[in-house]
Computed example of a mutant assay.
Amino acid sequence: MLTKKQLQLLEFINTRMQKDGVPPSFDEMKEALDLRSKSGIHRLITALEERGFIRRLAHRARAIEIVKLPESLGGAPSAPVSQGGFTPRVIDGDRPSSPPPSNAFDVEVATAINLPIMGKIAAGVPIEAVSDGAVNVAVPGSMLSGQGNHYALEVKGESMVEAGINHGDIVVIRETSQAKDGDIVVAMVEGYETTLKRYKRMGDRIALEAANPAFETRILPADRVEVQGRLVGLIRSY
């Protein structure tokens, strides 16, 4: 599961290596993806390496080896995942249609739905959410809305503490590209950084507001912010 920017970078590296036999420089990658700094390229390269698409070779300049390609770039289809693995996906939030159990405890168990924890989400400085989906969390069906897909993310940071969202909490997200003022959303910034913030529209700009006075509100052009989901629930372990 690659973001649009990750896929664009992988395609650019592959094209250049097929043409010239060597990978492009970080400056060339930055220019090709229209990013403002090389730090964004470093994050994308790290994400591609963590997902097994590329390998960086030590002690060699510009040494990147492509290990595999997704099907959209001509790679082989993925092999079926065994019982011990997991294919990243989101799960529909509708309640199961099983008959009502006889007591309240059984009702809660019967309506629990396993969602994949798709990585970490920043409640602070934006980071890249890692879509590994290696761990599931059981979510009460009553927490999910009846429409759309849902997934879970682990919160990293303290910028949303006054909204009751702490470091280490698991947030439940309904997948959507739409948001209203005041919604707490998963927002992708400039195509590669992901953060959890309160959304506010300001004409042709978007304000991503923290719920902690120690963190500043970020105001960005609307075309640099992509809403990927809206907060619908929270799970905390003690």
Rank of each mutant, 00 (worst) to 15 (best):
G74Q: 07
L208T: 06
K38T: 15
S237F: 13
V67C: 09
T3W: 08
I127R: 04
V139Q: 06
G182Q: 10
P70G: 09
R236H: 14
R55M: 12
Q228V: 03
Q83E: 09
I117W: 05
R201D: 02
A32I: 11
R16M: 13
I235M: 13
T176C: 08
T217K: 07
H59F: 14
I66F: 09
L33T: 12
R218W: 14
M29D: 05
I121C: 04
I41R: 05
E154T: 15
L115P: 01
E50T: 11
N166V: 06
S237P: 00
V67P: 06
S98Q: 07
P116K: 05
D92H: 05
R51N: 12
A187W: 03
D106E: 03
E31I: 13
A32K: 14
F12K: 13
E162I: 10
K200C: 11
K180S: 14
R205Q: 15
V135I: 14
R224M: 04
G21I: 12
A79Y: 06
A138Y: 07
E158H: 07
N166R: 09
I127N: 06
S142W: 01
V185T: 08
T217Y: 05
V107L: 01
P221E: 02
G74A: 08
V171L: 10
S82I: 07
L220Y: 05
S145H: 03
L231N: 06
A47L: 08
P213V: 07
G157R: 04
K120N: 00
T3E: 10
E65M: 14
R89C: 11
S72Q: 15
A138S: 15
N212P: 09
D183L: 10
A210K: 04
S142V: 07
I91N: 04
D106G: 01
K30N: 13
R43L: 15
T15Q: 14
V137G: 03
F105A: 00
F105T: 01
G146T: 11
S97L: 13
Y238F: 14
R230D: 02
R224G: 01
A123N: 00
D204L: 13
P101V: 00
S145M: 07
L69S: 06
E28N: 12
S72R: 14
G75M: 05
P140C: 01
S25T: 15
V135S: 11
N166H: 11
K5Y: 13
H150T: 03
A61V: 13
E154H: 11
H42N: 15
P100A: 02
A222M: 00
G84M: 12
A76H: 05
S72K: 14
I219D: 08
G74N: 06
A187D: 01
I173H: 02
E190Y: 07
A211Q: 14
R43F: 11
M29Y: 04
I45T: 14
R218Q: 15
V107E: 03
F105V: 02
G85R: 01
Q178F: 11
D169K: 02
L220S: 04
Q83K: 10
R201H: 03
V232W: 03
Q83C: 06
P99W: 03
A207N: 10
